[in-house]
Design a binder for these strands. Structure first.
Lengths: 191, 191
DNA sequence: GTCTATATAATGATAGAC
DNA sequence: GTCTATCATTATATAGAC
């Protein structure tokens, strides 16, 4: 197993565990168990736990950017593209029900820890924010595109939090329907 | 300092610290420092850390119930009462900006920890949920009162998460204005 | 690159003096 | 009811053999 491969395995295992158990609750021992390496071997690839966190955030940023690029092509119209965003609530409903939103929960945890990486974690939100903003601009909403983007992000965050708290999948579907309706109101109604 | 007083001090300090630092990140040493007692003295009042968490949740449930009872009296109409709920985003905006919503973040953390107390933490949401539901029923929305209550809870959760991520107080005010408008649409429009 | 063994610090928790 | 002293465990992190 080459250096790069082991490193990648560590980051991917950490990515999953940070999501499902939280950053602080996840120990080297736990990651090592998943990757099947010794704890000592860890420090060949990363000097500190914070470095793993940085790598995880970088991985998520990359994956998110790829997803957004894909939506840009696959979604024909801006509305269809924004629907792709809303639809991740449906696609990931099972995990959301158990662990909430990976972006929102990580950001909240790091905020409480006053962790230096919180700024980078927020960049995950920024990627969505500016992507959504540009889609709303394409819909003619030049003035309040950012406002609409933030609103939509907040709505999806709220859905994830409540769905997790009440373990309620039906609520996700209910709210997604409302979000689609909300979106339709913003088609060809530029101010 | 009597027994009851020290115990109450511990619970109140833990309440604040669990909110601002998270449950797991808060150690006995940290609580002890705030309350100014030794770590050993702790175990006279609580056998385990989980018992403190239970006490904190119970405290929050009590405080929430008192607040809801107060809103029931002070808010003249159901709409005014629901506005009281929305308005906590404004009243607590400074803390929300830094630490998010105390209910949402605790619930999310406990969900990831698979902590037994997650069920009790969700009861905090339930208090708001059923209180809001009954207000929407009074407004004539008999069929979808619970749906509206959950929607409003989700909206406020989303606002808190995003405001915390971007440290954005202005966004809170923006969204609160929209929530007031949303609420006005549901006055005398029962289905 | 990976391992074992170990250092060091902090945690939750206990025992017993006062 | 509060303290000091201490234990057991776990965590991050290091050193050095292979």
């Amino acid at each position: 197993m080459s250096d790069k491969s082991t490193r990648a395995h560590i980051v991917e295992a950490a990515d999953q565990l940070f999501y499902q158990q939280g950053f602080e609750h996840t120990s080297f021992a736990h990651i090592a168990e998943v990757v099947k390496i010794s704890r000592g071997n860890f420090y060949y690839h990363f000097k500190t736990k914070d470095e793993i966190l940085d790598a995880v955030i970088y991985l998520r940023l990359s994956k998110t950017q790829i997803m957004l690029d894909k939506w840009l092509i696959e979604g024909g119209t801006p509305v269809e593209r924004i629907r792709c965003f809303i639809n991740i609530l449906i696609l990931n409903r099972e995990k959301i029900k158990h662990f909430g939103c990976p972006v929102g929960t990580l950001t909240s945890e790091l905020a409480k820890l006053k962790h230096a990486a919180q700024k980078d974690a927020t960049k995950l939100f920024s990627l969505f924010r500016f992507w959504l903003k540009s889609q709303f601009q394409l819909l003619g909403h030049m003035k309040n595109a950012d406002e609409l983007a933030m609103h939509l992000l907040a709505r999806s965050q709220g859905v994830a939090t409540m769905a997790c708290a009440f373990n309620d999948e039906k609520f996700i579907k209910q709210e997604v329907t409302q979000l689609y309706e909300w979106l339709d109101h913003y088609v060809d109604s530029a101010t």
